[in-house]
Simulated scan of single mutants.
Amino acid sequence: MTYAMPGRAGLDYAPYRYGSSKLLFRGPRRPPPDDYVACLGGTETFGKFVLRPFPDLLEEPLGKTCLNFGVVNAGVDAFANDAAVLEAAAGARLAVVQVMGAQSLSNRFYSVHPRRNDRFVRVSDLMRSIFPEVDFTEFHFTGHMLSTVAARCPKRFATLREEMRTAWLARMRTLIERIGAPVVLLWFAEHSPDTFPIRTVEVRAPEPLFVTRAMVEALRPAVATVVEVAASEAARADGTEGMVFRDVEAPAARGLPGPRAHAEAAEALAPVLRGLLDR
Rank of each mutant, 00 (worst) to 15 (best):
M1Y: 11
T2N: 07
G7C: 02
G10D: 14
P15F: 08
P15K: 10
Y16G: 03
R17I: 13
G19D: 11
S20Y: 06
S21K: 01
L23E: 04
L23S: 05
F25K: 01
R26T: 12
R30G: 01
R30A: 05
R30D: 09
P31I: 08
P33H: 04
A38W: 09
C39Y: 01
G41K: 00
G41F: 01
G47W: 04
K48M: 15
R52P: 07
P53G: 13
F54A: 10
F54N: 08
P61N: 09
C66W: 00
L67E: 04
F69R: 03
G70E: 09
A74M: 02
V76C: 08
F79H: 03
F79Y: 06
F79D: 06
A80K: 06
N81F: 11
A83C: 02
A84H: 06
V85F: 07
L86K: 07
V96D: 10
V97A: 14
V97S: 04
Q103D: 00
S104M: 03
L105E: 13
S106D: 13
N107D: 15
R108I: 15
S111V: 13
V112R: 00
N117Q: 11
F120W: 02
R122V: 12
M127T: 04
S129I: 00
I130R: 00
E138S: 12
T142M: 00
G143I: 00
H144I: 02
H144E: 06
M145P: 00
T148S: 08
V149A: 04
A150P: 00
A150L: 03
R152W: 09
R152N: 08
C153Q: 08
C153G: 13
F157L: 05
T159E: 15
T159Y: 09
E163C: 10
R165A: 14
T166N: 12
T166R: 11
A167H: 06
L169N: 10
L175P: 05
I176F: 02
R178A: 11
P182Q: 05
P182E: 14
P182L: 12
W187V: 14
P193Y: 11
D194F: 10
R199F: 06
V203S: 00
R204S: 10
A205E: 07
P208D: 12
F210Q: 00
V211D: 05
R213Q: 15
R213A: 15
A214T: 11
M215P: 02
V216M: 15
E217A: 15
A224S: 15
T225F: 12
A235F: 10
R236F: 09
R236N: 13
A237S: 15
G239F: 06
G239V: 13
V244H: 01
F245N: 01
E249N: 07
A250M: 08
P251L: 01
P251G: 06
A253Y: 05
A263P: 09
A266M: 13
L269Q: 07
L269I: 13
A270Q: 07
A270E: 08
L277Q: 02
